[in-house]
Design a protein around this nucleic acid. Sequence first.
DNA 1: TCGAAGAGTTACCGAACAGTAACAACGGAC
DNA 2: GTCCGTTGTTACTGTTCGGTAACTCTTCGA
Lengths: 195, 195
Amino acid sequence: MRLPAAERRQQLLATALEVFAEKGFHDTSMNDVAAAAGVTKPVLYQHFPSKRELFRQLLHEIGEQLRQSIAEAWGSAEGGREELERGFEAYFEFLAKQHASYTVLFGAGTRRDAEFAAEVRAVEESIAEGIASRIMIEGITEEHRRFLAYAIVGMAEGSSRQVMLEHLDLDPRTLAARVSELAWAGLRGIRPTGH
Amino acid sequence: MRLPAAERRQQLLATALEVFAEKGFHDTSMNDVAAAAGVTKPVLYQHFPSKRELFRQLLHEIGEQLRQSIAEAWGSAEGGREELERGFEAYFEFLAKQHASYTVLFGAGTRRDAEFAAEVRAVEESIAEGIASRIMIEGITEEHRRFLAYAIVGMAEGSSRQVMLEHLDLDPRTLAARVSELAWAGLRGIRPTGH
DNA sequence: TCGAAGAGTTACCGAACAGTAACAACGGAC
DNA sequence: GTCCGTTGTTACTGTTCGGTAACTCTTCGA
């Protein structure tokens, strides 16, 4: 099965995603990825200079996808409350429909490695900044606002973990409704920084 | 520097904590740990049967510490709101004062490995269950209650990450006050399951 | 003082695996 | 048909590292 370079590259990325999602970065060898794609190792090295670089590119691509989905969701909504909820919906949809991507991005040993962590952080930061800019509360500091934004991102991550753990199959809309209800009500209860 | 077995074991665990916190599980060799402790590899193997087991025992010990700190905090408070806040305070105190432990428990590639993930999950579950049992809302399902509990655990994790990232040195009480304000207000705004 | 139990070391094995050099086969252009 | 660039393979290297066998050194009780 011969393929032109561009196609092969895409196939390798897709295959790598599956394998990394299943076994994690460290327990996956370049051989594993190559074999899963039906080729041999040197082919992989024709497209990616190293294992780390393959993984980094993968992370980047996945990260951009999530980032963009959420950004689009925000764009298609009106008013802080609805933007928030649509954003969460996009997030949980990503979790549901691109499970392997979600696992690689947030579940793998990703945060340990400085270079990989930077990729993940960029996504999280982008989401958090988006949320922060939608928090309209009088009398709180910029730093406090961002703190709350990260806490809200954490809510999504925490509840996702539980959904995965207990194999709940709640649809993204329900999850988003629940989380944004918690977040929105929480934000409305915030008093000015420093009591 | 010869040491009796029990002391050596403790020293090795303490050393392993530091090294694993700095370099992560995969980038730390048994030699690294041994050398950092001022001994050679076989000594390590006299106390721990394998690298995995060393790490697992470490995780377990650390996990128990965090779990117990929070449980104590809950015990010393009265009323849901204050229990929640004291619990968060214990959590953020752990983050501040036992930074290496926090890093190993939540920051390392811990969640990828099934066996290691189980240790971390046990801690998280214990915290989440504690929170769930303190959520007094009429008309929500048990499953909804637990979902909210995990979301709240996520808040703590998310905001911790931001505190670490931006090197904020806010004291645990302030952090706890902010997070519990968000969580408590959020919970008060939850309507019965299913709108 | 002497000997045995415990503490620690040196020196090694074998496997796994990232990465590469050298070679083979396909397939389109002419 | 016959080039020739592209795609792919076989077979290898070098290193890292978990784990172990066989030993030496120390200490302390009788």
